[in-house]
Nucleic acid binder design. Sequence first.
DNA 1: CAATCATGTTTGTCTTTCTCAAACATTACA
DNA 2: TGTAATGTTTGAGAAAGACAAACATGATTG
Lengths: 267, 267
Amino acid sequence: MDDSRPADGPRRIKSVQTASEILAAIQRRPDPTFSDVCDELDASKGTVHTYLATLEEEGFVAKVDGRYRLGLRLVTMGETVRNETPLYRAGQLEVDKLADTTNEYVHLTVVSRGKEVTIYESRGDNAVATDYHLRMREAPQYLHCTATGKAMLGHFDDDRVRDIIDDQGLVEQTDNTISDTDRLFDELERIRERGYAVNDEEELRGMRSIGAPIRGVDGDVCGAVSVTAPTSRLSGDRFRSEIPELVMQAANIIEVNLETTTFDPSR
Amino acid sequence: MDDSRPADGPRRIKSVQTASEILAAIQRRPDPTFSDVCDELDASKGTVHTYLATLEEEGFVAKVDGRYRLGLRLVTMGETVRNETPLYRAGQLEVDKLADTTNEYVHLTVVSRGKEVTIYESRGDNAVATDYHLRMREAPQYLHCTATGKAMLGHFDDDRVRDIIDDQGLVEQTDNTISDTDRLFDELERIRERGYAVNDEEELRGMRSIGAPIRGVDGDVCGAVSVTAPTSRLSGDRFRSEIPELVMQAANIIEVNLETTTFDPSR
DNA sequence: CAATCATGTTTGTCTTTCTCAAACATTACA
DNA sequence: TGTAATGTTTGAGAAAGACAAACATGATTG
């Protein structure tokens, strides 16, 4: 009844947190109006108004006939992030090739704050669930139910995996999702042995993926690559050896690229 | 000597502006250290520290062994922006096709705040200047020296064009850049007549482009599409009729897609 | 067509929170 | 080991943010 102290801890800029919340609110809601944004925040109209005006001026938000959107500055900044991620430069071409030979979706992902973000995606000619994959890239995804995610988890040390599970939980996205910690650790063990991870309709019903980890120069995992296809097209030999082989090859080539580009003197 | 009034005008949140400046500083400088960031801002170390901590917590900034980078949240948000730009959904496939038939770089751009932003890019097998195009996407570009930019300017009304010129100037990127207002207006006239715009080494020496405007349902220009290739491969008939024809066809198809997807009831 | 309502914008004022210095840590370097 | 460089924390004054309420502007409706 007495903990009215400022509960210190490290200092933060509250206005920046508020701005971030507003951006999140706009992202959550499609094309919100001014009062839609107000509804999602607990701040007065006047305050929200000033924030939106500032964010618009800075290019983080755009107003299109009375409705708010995230601004194009986020596109250019996002582009910078990708270009400065060594994995992107090292992997882009190889991902395109893999999409070309498999004709399916290929993803290149990295871990950030306990989730994974797709840094590059290539769509083979037969790729399905385009809309799902479009939307999926708009937010970081769980690691425990994707091929790339599990491939990476398999090469983290147990403490780190445990921390991630504690933070994120093992949300059941489908009936096949591994939602039990022990089972997940068993699975990670198998992934380590085989060298690749399988996602058997654990993220999305009807879709399977094969993923392999990518190690950086220091030996630590810095990302993963995967092929995703409808279960009907990803079964039998193709599921058990052909695609896994191709994915691991691609991962290997990207690793080599990484080593050589990292030492690129022009950077 | 007396204008010490608050110089009112509409209110803004200063902290958000500061945060924006910090992000810009990090984007400008590759992998800056803490004091690098301080150097670019005029704020005390303590202040910058608090901002960076906040931005990191929010995912807009990441610290990788002592150096700052833009954070992956910008990637996911940027992805949202693209996905919610109708032009992207309407044009993506067509841009891929055009890159496939021409084997060159194809760009899909929109205007924002007097400059253009590439919302999607497809790289044909022979595409050159990969690195330039990578970097180019990290910042909005001038309209007066690109094929897409001029295609769009050609269909704005004169006042709007004049405003843009006043704001942005006619920076000479190469010897061929049109840096004279009257000459630019003449050129825009020709573009309107022909239906497509030409960039003849006006942006980058050795590179030519052909661009066509894309009109939205309301009839207003909402973007443009272009093919870019080295001058040696873009000359003669290919330069004067083949590629222009293909680009205008693509623009036309995208316009049709736009009309049909806009009325998509699922949205 | 007036009147009511919903939506968005501006302003005065009090409170919160930024910001600066300066002190404090921590790490590099000689 | 001492000195410098870099990064982090803190106290307190000054500045800026937040609220509420008033003000516009457009919709909607009786």
